[in-house]
């Protein structure tokens, strides 16, 4: 009973941790707009957490500058499992207008598994909200997968996905489900 309750709750109480990896601040204020009375993300249980240790969903905005990349990855690795990674805006997906710059390391999916990518420059709050709600479903799936793995005898759950091999820079498609504006 408690296992089901926990699985259900996982989707109903996603806490966000927002990382700005060199964003122009456009996506950031749209994320804040999601929390305002007009859109009110709290009705789905969303809450901005102060520390990555509390978070379920990591929201990344910005084109991953050279300076911010290791910090972003470190903060992501500090988020406990099960976790979801959502990128906001085109920058973390492709580099957007900064693509090709010597100091821009986008896309994020080269380094970690991205669950949901919300495209747009900047995406509308509705789109962000849609992406976040989809992420909650993925969280629930991950929890179920973990339970399944535990049943099959893996004590620590499925292998963490963060240590996947880093593919070559060129041939990385933007992974995850894209949400069109």
């Amino acid at each position: 009973m408690f296992k089901n309750l926990i699985t259900e709750s996982t989707a109903k109480s996603p806490w966000l941790f927002h990382i700005n990896s060199g964003s122009c601040n456009g996506c950031d204020i749209e994320l804040v707009a999601v929390l305002t009375p007009r859109y009110d993300a709290e009705r789905f249980g969303f809450k901005l957490a102060g520390s990555p240790r509390h978070a379920d969903i990591v929201v990344v905005s910005g084109p991953l500058t050279q300076q911010s990349l290791p910090r972003t990855l470190r903060a992501i690795s500090q988020v406990p499992e099960p976790r979801c990674i959502v990128t906001i805006g085109s920058c973390p997906q492709s580099g957007n207008v900064f693509k090709g710059s010597y100091s821009v390391m986008a896309p994020l999916s080269k380094y970690v598994h991205v669950d949901v990518a919300v495209a747009g420059c900047t995406p509308k709050p509705e789109a962000i909200m849609d992406g976040l709600v989809q992420a909650t479903e993925i969280l629930k799936e991950k929890r179920k997968a973990w339970l399944e793995a535990k049943k099959n005898g893996l004590k620590d759950g499925p292998k963490a996905e963060t240590e996947q091999e880093v593919p070559a820079a060129e041939d990385v498609p933007a992974s995850g489900e894209e949400v069109q504006q």
Binding site: I19, P52, S68, R71, T72, R74, A75, Q78
Partner: peptide
Amino acid sequence: AEGKFDIFFGG
């Protein structure tokens, strides 16, 4: 994973 067990220090 590198950094997972570090103290959170703003990244």
